[in-house]
Simulated scan of single mutants.
Amino acid sequence: MTQQRTGVATFKGNPITLIGPELKVGDAAPDFKLNRNLLEEATLQDFAGKVKLISVVPSLDTGTCDAQTRRFNTEAADLGEHVVILTVSVDLPFAQARWCGAAGVDQVVTLSDYKARSFGEAYGVLIDELQLDMRAIFVLDENDRIAYVEYLGEMSEHPNYEQAIAAVKALR
């Protein structure tokens, strides 16, 4: 039976149910299978040996998600080639590509959880009622251990960008 977490998150003040475990600092990051496009998949192993900042957003076509992704795209320039920033949403891969092109976002790798929502479930961010991934930040070290995690309590709020970037810089 899949774990369900209630009372930990809201969307515009309304309670939502998150599916999957609450990951903690020190945990091994679960593997994932996400889509780069309709045919090509990506797994955690594709980013082996790099520090990974995983920015999870419900949909790039919303104001907070747009701002979050643009912010990490800007921050990427100062983080070096040993760091990769992944933005995960359930948007279709071509919607992600369209959004990135229109927004000029080119430093972030967008990955889609649209097929099986397995990332959302493995990382404890799948919203049962909406079938979207809840806003969250995960920073993984080069050995795929979680060094920083932030689950947002309210879906429409911004994450703590400064703490996430500081966690990445501490691992470089």
Rank of each mutant, 00 (worst) to 15 (best):
G20F: 04
N160S: 11
Q163A: 13
E22T: 10
K52R: 13
G120Q: 03
N14F: 11
V8K: 00
M1S: 10
D91K: 09
A147D: 04
I85H: 03
G153K: 09
G124R: 06
F32P: 03
V125G: 06
G80A: 11
V83H: 06
A103P: 09
F119S: 01
A102E: 15
V90L: 12
V88T: 07
V25R: 13
Q107E: 14
V109A: 07
R117V: 08
I127M: 15
R5Q: 09
A95C: 13
F32Q: 05
A122N: 10
P21S: 07
V57H: 00
D66C: 05
T10I: 05
V168W: 03
A95G: 14
T87V: 13
P21E: 08
V51D: 00
V149Q: 03
L132D: 04
G80W: 11
N35G: 09
R36I: 14
Y114Q: 10
D46V: 06
Q4I: 07
I146K: 01
Q131V: 14
N37D: 15
T10Y: 03
Q107T: 12
F94P: 13
A9W: 00
R98V: 12
I127Q: 10
A167L: 07
R36H: 11
A97I: 12
R71C: 05
Q96K: 08
P58Y: 02
N143E: 10
S59L: 07
I85M: 05
L126V: 10
N73Y: 10
I137M: 11
F11R: 06
F138T: 01
A48C: 09
Q96H: 13
S112A: 08
P15F: 02
A164H: 00
Y114N: 12
L44V: 11
V139S: 01
M1G: 11
